[in-house]
Simulated assay, not measured.
Amino acid sequence: MDSTVSIFQLKMEDGITFFLLSSVLLLTCGLSREDDAVCVRPILDGNIELASNQTHFSPGEAIVLSCKQGYTPVSGPRRIVCIVDGTWTRTRYMCKSKLCPYPDPPANGEQYYEDTVYLSTINYTCHEGYTLKGSRTAVCQANGTWSTPTPECKAVSCGLAPIPKFGMIIYDRTVRGDKTYFGIGGTYRCLPPYALFGNPRAECTIRGTWTKTPECRVVTCPPPDNIEKGYMSNGDRRDFDFMETVKYGCNDDYVLDGNMEIVCQQNGNWSEKPSCKASCPIESEKAKIEYRGKKTWTSDLQNKVILHKEIVSFYCKDTVRNCTYTVPTQCLDGVLKLPECFEELSKFEYNLNSTEIQQC
Rank of each mutant, 00 (worst) to 15 (best):
E110I: 13
Y113Q: 10
D115I: 11
T116Y: 13
V117A: 04
L119M: 15
S120V: 07
I122H: 03
N123V: 08
N123G: 03
N123P: 01
Y124E: 14
Y124G: 02
T125D: 04
C126D: 05
C126G: 00
C126A: 01
H127Y: 12
G129L: 10
Y130P: 06
Y130F: 05
L132Q: 06
G134F: 11
G134N: 11
S135T: 02
S135Y: 13
R136Q: 10
T137K: 03
V139K: 07
C140Q: 05
C140F: 12
A142I: 07
N143A: 06
G144F: 11
P149L: 06
P149W: 13
T150M: 12
T150G: 12
K154E: 03
K154W: 08
V156Y: 00
V156Q: 01
S157F: 09
C158V: 15
C158Y: 02
G159P: 08
L160F: 02
L160G: 13
P162C: 10
P162W: 04
I163D: 11
G167V: 01
G167E: 06
I169P: 09
I170N: 11
D172T: 14
R173V: 12
R173H: 09
T174R: 06
R176N: 12
G177Y: 05
K179W: 05
K179R: 07
K179M: 07
Y181E: 05
Y181L: 00
I184V: 13
I184R: 14
G185P: 01
Y188I: 01
R189V: 06
L191W: 09
P192T: 10
P192M: 15
P193Y: 00
P193R: 03
Y194H: 08
A195S: 02
F197V: 06
F197E: 12
G198E: 01
N199W: 06
P200G: 11
P200I: 00
P200R: 08
R201K: 07
C204P: 15
T205Y: 04
R207P: 10
R207E: 05
R207Q: 09
G208E: 14
G208M: 09
G208Q: 12
T209S: 09
T209Y: 00
T209C: 02
K212C: 04
P214M: 06
E215P: 13
C216W: 12
R217Y: 03
V219Q: 12
